[in-house]
Design a protein around this nucleic acid. Structure first.
Lengths: 163, 163
DNA sequence: TATTGTTATACTCTATAACTATA
DNA sequence: TATAGTTATAGAGTATAACAATA
């Protein structure tokens, strides 16, 4: 952002009254951290005509374990109507296939060989970007950050709703 | 999550092969942490008919400092075409007003008294939820997390693009 | 009767390009 | 000529409710 965006105030370059307060917002900090890191990976998924939610679904299935729609919705942060369309689109491209399940209500899917190959290819292609961020930030801090993020989520999900 | 979602495997409850790997994804961890915390605040903005991007704009302007559209786009993680509509909607509700600027190309806005009052009201209403998360997670860890998130963003934004 | 997922619908945001106004 | 925003347009996700199928 340009410095003269704040020309109305007489503060030093890069220092604005609102900035510090704004950065104390957890949800905004999470969004901005995600935006700045995700932006570097997006071109790889774009090149494969995968939207980011589609990429999360492939990732969630990457270890080969079949998952049902409900689990995918929760892990990938996608609402059921969106997931229905996403699963259909990925299945039409031959990237995943339905798996029969004892409970016929469940829509259970797994990656096909083609889907697994596409996932592996994307991991390889984006590896340099991942390492670039990892090294600039520091592996130890990255580990701490991931642990804090997962812990925050687990604790928050267990909290009772207020009123 | 239901335990029988993983009935195909014979692993202990809550332990799935994919889970650990999936949780090592930074961008997914950021998304899920945001979803679990944001969900608790959303009802307050919903009650005021504010979308989350609109709420971020009010928040960015909350200290009274006028900001231009470009700065708002960056701080609120909103693309220019979306911001144009958001500023129009908020102005029509009398929550913000345009401020004249030396550079007539800039769309500079500030909160009106009504906008500031709505912001303050939302902060008060959501205070219990904020404290609930803060106390469950721990203030010290929350502080560490916020610092790591802001540092990660600043470092990542400065990284050169690969190729 | 409760649960899982799909369909329907309306709205918003995302994303890119083309355009206008100003510097 | 470059910059800041707006407009245009297509596409995808968000969100709620209603519905179908299964348990």
């Amino acid at each position: 952002m340009k410095a003269d965006a704040h020309a109305l105030s007489a503060l030093p370059e890069g220092v604005t009254p609102g900035k510090d307060y704004y950065e104390r917002s957890l949800t905004v900090a999470l969004l901005r951290a995600r935006e700045s890191t995700m932006r570097r990976f997006k071109r790889y998924s774009d090149a494969q005509n995968l939207t980011l939610p589609q990429w999360r679904v492939l990732r969630a299935l990457a270890d080969g374990e079949p998952l049902d729609a409900g689990t995918l919705c929760q892990r990938c942060v996608i609402l059921p109507p969106s997931l229905t369309r996403i699963l259909r689109a990925l299945a039409e491209r031959g990237l995943l296939a339905q798996v029969t399940c004892n409970d016929a209500r469940r829509h259970m899917v797994t990656l096909t060989d083609k889907g697994k190959a596409l996932f592996d290819s994307l991991v390889v292609q984006s590896e340099d970007s991942r390492r670039q961020i990892d090294e600039a930030f520091g592996q130890e801090k990255m580990q701490t950050l991931l642990d804090l993020l997962n812990e925050l989520r687990e604790i928050t999900e267990r909290l009772p709703d207020l009123d």
